[in-house]
Amino acid sequence: MTIITDEGVDLTEDEAKLYDRQIRLWGWDAQKRLRGSKILVYGMSGLGAEVVKNVVLAGVKSMTVMDPEITTAENSYTNFFLPVEKIGENRASAAVNAIKALNPSVEVLAETDKLESKNDSFFDQFDAVCLVGASQKQIIRVNDICAALHKKFFCADVFGFYGYVFTDLGVHKYTEEVEVSQPSDPKKPKLDTVTKTFMKTRAFVPFKDTLDLVWTEGDFKGRVKKVDVTLFIIQALMAFVDAKGRLPSVDTLEADKKSLTELTESILEKGNVPKDKLPLDFVDNVFGCLMPVCAIVGGVLGQEIIKACSHKDPPFNNTFLYDGINSSGTVQCLKK
């Protein structure tokens, strides 16, 4: 029988029924902590929609969606909260009603400002902040703010068949249920397995500490053999977005492929990564926002936000990489 503590927010009878299935999975305490959490998701792309859907369904206290952009035709077929009739409206405010309908017990709010215009105090009202498709400059800035305020920080993006999730949970405390063997009856020699709950702690580093790693120095020496090269693909794409202020586009296909190739070569060179580690034909597969890739990365990111807010189960530390062309998904622990 589960012991119900006073932590978090109490659940109503109706909520208990709604969340019945997931309570069976992660327990009452975790659900109550989740129920008390306020989340900010910036970036209402296809990936943003997937994350918002997963977290709102799980039952948080509030979800603030933030996006300064206007809905385009392209958005309307990657973000299922934004059908064609929303084209021309702000991406955050146009999605609010559809998000609310997913789970009426969650408060859903929209922010239409630019990320740059928000100062430290804005982020203080949330328990977890998640940036989707932000520039590296903003990722570093908001990550620092969140670290100082002890907020859980996430950032993520997808580019064609590739995607990543980064997490900085500060010093994160969580409970983990582990099956242990113990003698159940002194008369019987057989061991019974029982589930015991342990309190654990895991420390994270900010995003900036994962950049500019030199793969022939210190801890990374030798690790370059095992590193998932998707990391360099993602870094090249983020550099592309920072430089051009937009995603690679099929309208400028050849030019964008060329820029990306150059950016990748310079990233490999700076990190002292052998050139043959990464075949450059990946540039064919970075175009467009593909729904299945959003669903995959959004599933991973959604679960990490749920883990972080419920303080249940070990979070990954600190970068998840997905490659849909070669079918791989790995977690890399990146830090200087």
Binding site: R21, Q22, L25, E50, K53, N54, L57, A58, M291, P292, V293, C294, A295, I296, G298, G299, V300, G302, Q303, I306
Partner: peptide, 11 residues
């Protein structure tokens, strides 16, 4: 749960 289902359907 929603997250796992979302991921599996993406795959």
């Amino acid at each position: 749960i929603a997250t796992t289902t979302s991921l599996v359907c993406g795959l």
